Every structure is written in structure tokens, then in C-alpha cells.
Simulated scan of single mutants.
Amino acid sequence: INRDGYFKNIRLSGRVRVVDSFPDLKVQVVSSFPDLKVKTVDSFPNDIGEWQFVDYGEDFTIQFVDSFPDIRIEFVDSFPGVC
């Protein structure tokens, strides 16, 4: 993840759909040493690390994995962003 919050030319904010196969990103949820702190929001996911989970109309897709992730995230209530 670069300092601007991009990974593989994907801006890590916006509307996110969880899929079971062929994701844009494989994500592992951790409780320490994340690459990105994620705050879930109901609307206007404009800042890096703000994700709105949707069923359609997504900006990118993710798959939750237990090993070999593209990025590691930690869910937070405040101060989302690149670690």
C-alpha cells in the first residue's frame, strides 16, 4: 500500500463487495500490525480506509482469507487509514 492509499491501482476507500472467488483484493483481518485501518460507514466512504459494504455497484471486491492476503486490515471505530 502506498502513502496515498492505493494498492494495485485500487484506491482503498469506497463501496466494497465481499465475494467468494476472483476478488480484486484478498484481505486478512488482524488485531495487530495491519496494513490498513478500516472504518465501516453507511454513506460517503470518501477517505482512505472508509469502506461501505454493498451488494452491488461496488468500487472493488474483496475476499476474506486466513492466509496469503494481499493486505491485512484491522477494523476500527475512528482514525481509519494507512498504517
Rank of each mutant, 00 (worst) to 15 (best):
V18E: 13
N46F: 03
V27A: 13
D4R: 15
F75L: 08
K8M: 08
G57C: 09
K39N: 04
I48T: 15
V82Q: 03
D77Q: 12
F60I: 10
F64H: 05
R72Q: 10
Y56N: 03
D70K: 02
I73L: 14
C83E: 10
P45A: 08
V18I: 14
N2K: 04
S32I: 03
K37L: 10
G14L: 05
D20W: 14
Y56M: 13
D42L: 11
G14K: 00
F53L: 13
I73A: 00
I73W: 09
S43P: 02
F33Y: 11
F64E: 01
D24M: 09
I73S: 04
D20I: 11
S67Y: 10
I1H: 02
V38C: 04
V65Y: 05
R15I: 01
S31E: 15
K37R: 11
T40L: 06
L25W: 05
F68A: 09
I71K: 01
G81N: 04
V18N: 02
D59P: 04
S13E: 02
V65T: 03
P80V: 06
P69Q: 00
R72F: 02
Q28F: 03
I10S: 00
S78Q: 07
V19G: 09
V30M: 08
D42G: 15
P34F: 04
V54Q: 13
Q52R: 15
K39V: 05
L36Y: 05
S78R: 09
S67D: 15
D42F: 10
S43F: 13
R15Y: 15
E50V: 02
F7E: 08
V19C: 05
S31W: 12
R72S: 08
I71A: 01
D55Q: 15
V54N: 04
R3T: 13
D77N: 15
D70A: 02
F60V: 13
P34N: 08
E74R: 15
D24A: 06
I71P: 02
F79E: 07
F75Y: 15
R17P: 05
F68M: 07
K8F: 01
R11Y: 12
Q28L: 13
D66Y: 00
D4P: 00
I62C: 04
V38E: 05
V76K: 06
G57Q: 04
K26D: 06
V76W: 09
C83H: 07
V54G: 05
R17M: 12
D55V: 00
F68G: 01
F64I: 12
K26V: 07
P23H: 10
V38Q: 02
L25R: 08
S78N: 14
F53M: 11
